[in-house]
Write a protein that binds this DNA or RNA. Structure first.
Lengths: 162, 162
DNA sequence: CTTATTGCAAACGTTTTGCACGTTT
DNA sequence: AAACGTGCAAAACGTTTGCAATAAG
């Protein structure tokens, strides 16, 4: 049974659609379609859940040992995709960012402080309140981030938390 | 006139109270009360608003040139105080953290993406929804962070945004 | 043939750490 | 005297950048 505020798990668009969207994006910005960019797009399409640039880098390195892809290219491509709205990121302070394919509906995150698990939720009431608050302060709202931290059900059973 | 969800500006506890709370904290953890820790506590008590460790470091350097306080000590003391709940921080990704004296009531932040201004708000509806969401997921909620990003009223008048 | 892209390594800004020395208890 | 705290410099961390070589259009 689906919780009322749960985000459906990745009803992924076909890879072909994502790919041609990417190609259009590149073309319209006079950017080039390279083997590395294609590989990154494909790898991140097949990533379930959230990943760090480092994790994506290692995965590509092991899946495509032939294509020597540098981590700088991973970062550059993720920025590119994030600016284009094809991926989104959550920030973890000094510990860096995690990315995910960003074609899902907007959502916030609930994060386990023990195992690092990230779940997603969407709450209409919270969304609405944010807009109202921004308005009260005279702000033109551009973005928001909301994270709930806690112990997930599994981790509550860990010896160390009992 | 005060907005309904605005946090009152630092109804500060007397410094003496903060100081003795700090001393108790140290004593109960077998930690020592040093000139540096005292100086840091005092400087951060007198800081209005949010500051980076670097900013606090420079301020202490200029106000107490005699006491040669290293930035490592600033970081160590801020961690100590944050763990004890005497200061809180907001994270800005790779750009580090900002701290503030944490004896105020809980609140969230609305941040101008142009000038960096940080305002505070508290919204009962949002707080309540967060608890409900954590509960629905079976999480034991420990903390949460909510940031609204946008252009503040002043910055909306900047030429570059018109 | 022009322009963008790459990998590499070096640089970056923030934060943490190892260590010998100094201070607090 | 024991234990903790300090400044310093070096290391660590995730990320960005300059550059000469390479690949795409």
């Amino acid at each position: 049974m689906k919780k009322s505020n749960e985000v459906a798990t990745s009803p992924l668009i076909p890879y072909e659609t994502l790919l041609s969207r990417f190609k259009e994006l590149l073309k319209s910005n006079n950017l080039k379609f390279t083997k590395q960019r294609e590989t990154i797009l494909f790898a991140l399409y097949n990533y379930t859940g959230h990943f760090t640039p480092e994790e994506l880098y290692r995965r590509i390195k092991s899946e495509q040992p032939g294509l020597n892809t540098g981590i700088a290219t991973i970062y550059r491509t993720l920025s590119l995709l994030e600016n284009a709205g094809l991926v989104t990121s959550i920030s973890f302070g000094t510990q860096g960012k995690k990315y995910e394919l960003g074609v899902k509906a907007h959502h916030d995150h609930i994060i386990c402080t023990n195992c690092g698990k990230i779940l997603e939720f969407y709450d209409e009431a919270i969304e609405r309140r944010q807009e109202i608050i921004a308005e009260e302060f005279g702000f033109k709202m551009e973005d928001h981030s909301m994270k709930i931290f806690g112990l997930c059900p599994e981790c509550q059973n860990d010896r160390k938390f009992q």
